[in-house]
Amino acid sequence: MRAARTLYGWAGLVLAVVAALAGPAHAAPSLEYAVKAAYLTKFIPFITWPARSFESPSSPVTVCLVGDDPFGGVLDAAARSARVGGRPINVRHLALPDAGCQMVFLSASDPELADEALEALKGKPVVTVTDSGMRPHGIISFVIDANHVRFDIDDAEAGREGISISSKLLDLAHAVRARGKP
């Protein structure tokens, strides 16, 4: 009797072990990067690019990822399900950003590459986003504050590049370098 009842407890263990040995593996990103990926798509509605940045009102917002992908596919999945004001979000993985990007995430994997990309994008209407712990910062830079993912905004730099960031997003930022400030 008891043996029969405990059977599914053991059966479960055996099943799980067998499955574990046989099963496919899917890499999950850390929660930190899942949150950062969600942020990236959610920043977009608060940002206005110059009209010339897009070919048409329905052309996609392109988010480019430079360096190693820390998101493990989560950013691509998030972008697929998101749509901003009639525009789909398109994610590209690039060695170096090009003119087709509206937002560029610079991974911390290769600081030299990130520096190079930041320099190349100066003066272009592209929102640069740097990962936490990186220097120098992009227009948006992630920061880890007491175990929470927050972000700083360099609104002065955004202004120089013709990008306007809504005051609501600025309010939500951890720190803001305001326009007209050095």
């Binding site: 949150v35 942020y39 959610k42 920043f43 880890i144 175990n147 929470h148 993912v149 997003l169």
Partner: peptide, 9 residues
């Protein structure tokens, strides 16, 4: 986006 800031990692 506000809730994202509340997620503890």
């Amino acid at each position: 986006i506000e809730q994202l800031a509340d997620v503890e990692i």
